[in-house]
Structure formats: structure tokens, C-alpha cells
């Protein structure tokens, strides 16, 4: 699972039928500098993540990329990134 900050959302006027009832987040992945507070946003590419938990802009989330992202759906789904947790708090202190 990767850690990211929600920086926006995406809306579609036409969408695959499997994706009813969820929203799509623009997520900025958090690397070591972002997690330790040296930098707020990194230069990593921004994935679009499917979300059923209702994350808003500025929330820190955990998202899963890969085939496991389709597990929660009972039918085959063309999806490779899903939000699995809204973080309340986190601590990150690598050894100096």
C-alpha cells in the first residue's frame, strides 16, 4: 500500500458501468521527504485513485495499485488503483 495526499478529484460524464457510486481522487504520492515534513508535495506522477470511503482534498490516504485493486468488486473491473484507508495520524522517523 502506498501513502498519498489527495490533491484533487476527477469527474467523468461517461464511465464504465462497473464504477457506479464512487468518486475519483487525484493523489500525490508521499516519499520520504514528504513524510518527514521536509517538502509538502513531491514530483512523482499523480495517479487517479478510485474511492468509496469519501476522501476529500488534503486527506492523507493509503491506496493500493495493481491487480489486487479489483478484489472488492464481485465482477471483473478495469481498475488498478483503489483507496483503502483514510489516515487519522501517522509518524515517520527514519534513523538519522
Amino acid at each position: 500500500m502506498k501513502i498519498g495526499t489527495v490533491i484533487g478529484s476527477v469527474t467523468f460524464n461517461a464511465l464504465a458501468p462497473q464504477f457506479k457510486g464512487g468518486n475519483w481522487l487525484m493523489v500525490s504520492p508521499m516519499g520520504t521527504e514528504e513524510l518527514t515534513g521536509k517538502r509538502e508535495f513531491g514530483q512523482a506522477s499523480t495517479p487517479v485513485v478510485y474511492d468509496r470511503l469519501g476522501a476529500g482534498v488534503g486527506d492523507k490516504i493509503l491506496y493500493v495499485e495493481g491487480a489486487e485493486a479489483t478484489q472488492p468488486f464481485p465482477y471483473p473491473t478495469p481498475l488498478d488503483a483503489i483507496n483503502v484507508a483514510l489516515l487519522d495520524t501517522f509518524q515517520f522517523q527514519p534513523p538519522a
Binding site: M1, G54, V84, A85, L86, D88, T89, F90
Partner: peptide
């Protein structure tokens, strides 16, 4: 590090999340 999340996927409930 570690993280806490009270609003998450059902399979994460009650699990310890480490970074």
C-alpha cells in the same frame, strides 16, 4: 513509523499499519 486509520477498508479494521 506507523499510521492509524479509523475509516478504512473492512479488512484493515483492527490491524496495525506500519510505514
Amino acid at each position: 513509523g506507523h499510521a492509524t486509520s479509523s475509516f478504512c477498508d473492512p479488512s484493515l479494521k483492527g490491524q496495525t499499519i506500519v510505514l
